[in-house]
Design a protein around this nucleic acid. Sequence first.
DNA 1: CTTGCTCCTGTAGTCACTACAGGATGCATA
DNA 2: TATGCATCCTGTAGTGACTACAGGAGCAAG
Lengths: 138, 138
Amino acid sequence: MRVEESIAIGELSRRTGVNIETIRYFERVGVLATPPRTSGGRRVYGTGHVRALGFVRRARELGFSPAEVRAILSLGGSAQASCSEVREIAAHHLERVRAKMEDLAQLESLLAATIDRCEGDGAASCAVIDLLDQPSSG
Amino acid sequence: MRVEESIAIGELSRRTGVNIETIRYFERVGVLATPPRTSGGRRVYGTGHVRALGFVRRARELGFSPAEVRAILSLGGSAQASCSEVREIAAHHLERVRAKMEDLAQLESLLAATIDRCEGDGAASCAVIDLLDQPSSG
DNA sequence: CTTGCTCCTGTAGTCACTACAGGATGCATA
DNA sequence: TATGCATCCTGTAGTGACTACAGGAGCAAG
């Protein structure tokens, strides 16, 4: 069998776009498996780590929380993860995305209308400031 | 002239819904004016502080960053703030809200489609996991 | 064997708060 | 006046998800 490629932390960082300090942080908090070390104490990664770290990065990019990432990884890593459980996490995440979209849509129309109302007025009261001054009707 | 109402920090907290510790924090970082003190060293607020803190809270609720809140406040407080400058900050904020909405919409359809594709399959590969495994096409 | 890059650990900084310890104040009641 | 209790004070440290730095060690090439 082939001996796996030896990848130093800097190289792993370059390949995945993840900060070196962040890689060590991920290891500390259990998001990335602890790699073996050289006799001198340096971390030695393999292509599996490249994939796993890419997986983590991608999940974070897609807005999964670190807790969710940990949950997915605890299901056995990207390859063996139980489909239905991962799907459930993703579905939950999707719900939150949709809720956030609604919030933002409301906020968008409120802000847009208010800014619009303000426009042109050089006068007395400012609609935007009034908006902020209201107790809580947003 | 009327002597202004004397409000203790706990009462201010109750009236505005802002945590006592957070009120002191706001004072430290310059988001809320430093109030006078009693001879014993206790903070004494007035109705102006109630309004100002409500203003800050409202702005945060609407998603303005602490930096933006500081910027608005530095324009002279809620009452005297220059309308056009506040409007500009709000407009900028609105742009960010819209950008975020677009991001979320993309993510929403990607997630929804992926989850949908996964459904029913008890088999081989999981669409959701595959999504996370891809390098960066989201 | 020295140069220079990469890597190591441990600690501390970031932001926007939140929480706690240990002690002082202030007000009402006995 | 004394006591009791709620509220308040400062200072420090914790949160989460990183990021940054200091001071030292590993390692490959010249």
